Computed example of a mutant assay.
Amino acid sequence: MTERDLRPFGRTVARWVGVGALVGVALAAALVPVVGSRAATDTAFALGALVFGFGVATWGGTVGFGGSMAAVQDHLGGESSWTRSGARQAFAVLTWVGVGWSAAAVAMSIALVGL
């Protein structure tokens, strides 16, 4: 890939990591009055890690079994708009959102609770 090809990819990744970070900060901030700083940041981190893990696992499954799914879809004559590239992109988005979410929860934990 050339440098020109990486710029849109980098912006896309940064956008989804930022979305995840906003979700992580908002969730932790909403939970602080209810359960306290430590539990709020721990919960936000756990949910972010869950989203990240789901994204990685399903992205890997799409890469590994995407050809089989496409063959089954062709064989059955399905009318769905599912594509391998679309599925990979969707689960990559979940992965990057989970990264931002978890990172924001860690940052808030350090800021609110300390090391």
Rank of each mutant, 00 (worst) to 15 (best):
M69H: 10
G24P: 02
M69W: 07
A57T: 15
P33M: 03
V34N: 00
A21Y: 04
V63G: 11
A44H: 02
V35W: 03
G67C: 04
E79R: 15
V23Q: 00
L50K: 12
T41A: 07
T62N: 13
M69I: 12
M69E: 11
F45I: 00
E79H: 14
G61C: 08
L50E: 13
G53P: 05
L94W: 08
A46N: 12
A30G: 15
A46T: 14
T62G: 13
A40L: 06
E79W: 11
T41I: 03
A49F: 12
T43H: 05
S85T: 15
R84L: 09
A30D: 07
A26F: 09
A49W: 07
F65D: 13
F45G: 00
W82P: 03
G64Y: 10
V25C: 09
T62I: 06
S80P: 03
A44N: 02
L47E: 07
V51W: 06
V34E: 02
G86S: 11
Q89E: 12
V56E: 13
G55L: 05
T43N: 04
V72S: 11
A29Y: 00
G48D: 01
A57F: 14
F91Y: 14
A40S: 10
L94S: 09
A26W: 06
G53L: 05
A28S: 09
S80V: 07
Q73Y: 06
T58I: 12
G55F: 02
T58M: 14
A30S: 12
L50H: 13
